[in-house]
Design a protein around this nucleic acid. Sequence first.
DNA 1: ATATATTTTTAGATTAATCTAAAAATATAT
DNA 2: ATATATTTTTAGATTAATCTAAAAATATAT
Lengths: 218, 218
Amino acid sequence: MITLTEENYIKAIYHLGKYGVDNVSTNSIAKEMETKASSVTDMVKKLSDKGYANYKKYQGVTLTEEGKEIAINIVRKHRLWEVFLVEKLNFSWDEVHEVAEQLEHIKSKKLISQLDAFLEFPTHDPHGDPIPDKTGKINKIDKILLSETIIGDQCICVGVQDSSSDFLKYLDKNKIALGTELVVSHREPFDNSITIKIKNKELIISNMIANNLFVKVS
Amino acid sequence: MITLTEENYIKAIYHLGKYGVDNVSTNSIAKEMETKASSVTDMVKKLSDKGYANYKKYQGVTLTEEGKEIAINIVRKHRLWEVFLVEKLNFSWDEVHEVAEQLEHIKSKKLISQLDAFLEFPTHDPHGDPIPDKTGKINKIDKILLSETIIGDQCICVGVQDSSSDFLKYLDKNKIALGTELVVSHREPFDNSITIKIKNKELIISNMIANNLFVKVS
DNA sequence: ATATATTTTTAGATTAATCTAAAAATATAT
DNA sequence: ATATATTTTTAGATTAATCTAAAAATATAT
Ligand SMILES: [Mn+2]
Ligand SMILES: [Mn+2]
Ligand SMILES: [Mn+2]
Ligand SMILES: [Mn+2]
C-alpha cells in the first residue's frame, strides 16, 4: 500500500525532474513540498526501499519505472478531475487545482475509466496540459512560450506554465483564453515586454506574463 | 482542522447512536471501525477535547451539536457521490459504497453545492437513504421493513437496510429494485418467510431478506 | 590547494493513530 | 450480597511523518 504522503512526494519528484529524467535534489523537494530537507531525506529512503525511487546519499533522486507509472497515474487523475470540475460543475480554471489535489488520491480504477468516458476522453486539461491515457502515454503538442516568439508570429494560445489564480485571473481580465489567436507585433528591448494584437486590439504584456503563456505558432 | 480518522469516528458514532441521540459504547465503535477498544478510548477523549463529542469515562459517547453537523455533512457528501456514481458514471448500486467512503472526505463547499445542482438536487441515494440538504435537514419518508407488513399489504420498495454487495446482487437477480411494486400474499409461521407477488409472479423471501428491505405500504 | 559556504544527512524528539497486556470499573448471576 | 464475567480504561510500545540542531559531505571562491 502506498500512502497519500508517498504519492505526493512521488508526484513532486516527477514534476521537478522534468517528468522523471533528471536527478532531483533534497532541497528542491523540500521547497516544493513545503517541508524540511531532513524530512525529505527520510521519505526518499523509504521510497527507495519500496522500489519507487533510486537514491544514493548526497546524489539526489530519480523515479524508478514503477515510481514513474504511479506519478503519471496521479497526474492523469488530477487532470481528468480538473476537466470534470470545469466542464460539468462550472468551476473556472483558476478554482480547480486545489480540489483536484484532493481528488487525485481517490483509489478506484473503475472510477477513473468511467470518468474518462463520461468526459468523452479529453486529451488536455483546462490549463492546456496533456492528460496521460490509461497506458500512461502522454501526447505532447509542440508549444513554445510567448516570450520565445519572434515579431510577426501568428499564434494560438494553448496552455499556461503557471496556473496560479492570480495569473489565470489576469488572463481572464484581458480576454485571453486557450484557443485565443494573437499576433506578436513588437518587443521592447529594455524590459522584454511584448505587444500583441488580439482581433486588432493591441495589448502590452510584461516579460513575466510572456514567460508563462504557451502558444503554438501557425 | 479535523482529520480523516476523526471524521470516520464521528460518522460511526452518528450511525451507531441512531443518528446522534443514544449513548454509544466504546466496544460498539471498536467493532464498527475494526479497531481495538483502547484505540477508541483515546480517540473519544480527543473528540471530546475538540468539542465534537460528550464523553464521561465508562458512560459511552454522544455527539455535540457541532459533531452532529459534521456527521450529517459527511453523510450528505457520501450519498451525493453515490448518486453521481450511479447516475453519471454507470456504477451499479452495489459498487458505489467503497468509492463514496473515500469521496466523502474531500473538502470543498463549492464542489458539493455544484455537484448537488449537477445531479438536480436528488433527495435520496441509490439505496433509498435520504440526502441531507445543505442546512442539514433530513427528509425522512415513512418506510417499514418488509418483515413488518401484514398479509394483503400492497407495497412499493423504497430502500435497503443492508447495502452489502451480496444483498444488492440478490435483489438484482430477483428483479427487485427501488420502485418495484409488490403484494404480500403469505407468511410462513415456522420460519417467518414471506411470499410476495411481483407482477403476479410469486417469490418466496426469507425472513433475513425481509428484514433488510424497506417498503412503503400504499 | 585550501578555506569557506552550502547542501545533505544523522541523531534525537514530537504528534497522531494504533496496538497488547494489565488494571479498574461496571454488569450479571447466584 | 458477593463472586464472577464483561467492558472499559490505563500504561507503555510501535509506526508514519514531521521537526530542530549538529555533523558530515559536497560545492565554491580565492
Ligand atoms: Mn492542477
Ligand atoms: Mn491543470
Ligand atoms: Mn454507502
Ligand atoms: Mn447509500
